[in-house]
Nucleic acid binder design. Structure first.
Lengths: 134, 134
DNA sequence: TTAATTAGAGACATCAAGAGTCTTTAATAT
DNA sequence: ATATTAAAGACTCTTGATGTCTCTAATTAA
């Protein structure tokens, strides 16, 4: 069980955008080069992030992407959610006579989600910048 | 991102076996009927559990499976591990210039694993029995 | 010893989702 | 008008999950 590569790329992209100065637009080409991805593929990921309201896009020449102005304190969970959609660690619908482990798994999942919700992009970006300087 | 159906079936099977009286062998047919699965498919899952030392198998007439005598305090994580193998939520190898989020994700994963490690089959089995009586 | 029963092993088939490409369209700046 | 950039969607390829089927090995009961 692992998160998809797309989620991984999305998180990296979001951390990178967070380190940029406000209002500066970054094109998909630059973001793709950074991660050695094809621009068209990354573009699909970026569109999902935009639809979720985490970033804002501007088409046309000198266009690009930037972190959303309205959405504050974006967390890791927000990003994961935007890419993977609503997920549940366990699918209890496969059981016919009632799921014995539903409560246990739900508890574990809530716990993990709350931790990922507490991880904010800005904190990680600061950390990354400090590491880069040293 | 979710655990596989096989892991789900394995957990249910293990909880069921834990509720049985010691040393009693349960055949794959009974375990499969309980979950409405084909015996041959469940058989593959059971073999993995046996190889991981979580259950013991006896072939031949009147044979079947029972919870391991040697392995005590089996946890949810043990079962998940037996089926899914060694997993990691994030694959950092896809990044060329160093993974920015490795530490964050590792922390979240460790947290979740330690919670699943604290969930013991015996506790869940007791709970399930109490619910059945009421 | 033979027959019935049960687990184990492995080849095989099927399906869904992930991963990624390509092409066309729409919007924006110069 | 033209160049640039995001958006949308069809398409391909690969991988892994989910099973099924068949044969073999071990054990019990007669």
């Amino acid at each position: 069980m692992k998160y998809s590569n797309a989620t991984n790329y999305a998180l990296h992209t979001m951390v990178y955008l967070t380190t940029q100065q406000r209002e500066k637009l970054v094109g998909v080409q630059e973001l793709a080069d950074m991660q050695r991805l094809s621009p068209t593929y990354l573009s699909k990921i970026l569109t999902k992030l935009a639809k979720a309201g985490l970033i804002e896009s501007t088409p046309g020449a000198k266009g690009g992407y930037k972190i959303s102005r309205t959405k504050q304190d974006i967390s890791f969970l927000d990003v994961i959610h935007a890419i993977e959609g609503e997920t549940s660690l366990f699918d209890c619908t496969i059981h016919h006579e009632g799921c014995l482990i539903e409560n246990v798994m739900r508890e574990a999942e809530e716990n993990m989600k709350s931790e990922l919700q507490s991880k904010l992009l800005v904190d990680i970006a600061k950390e990354a910048e400090m590491n880069q300087k040293s």
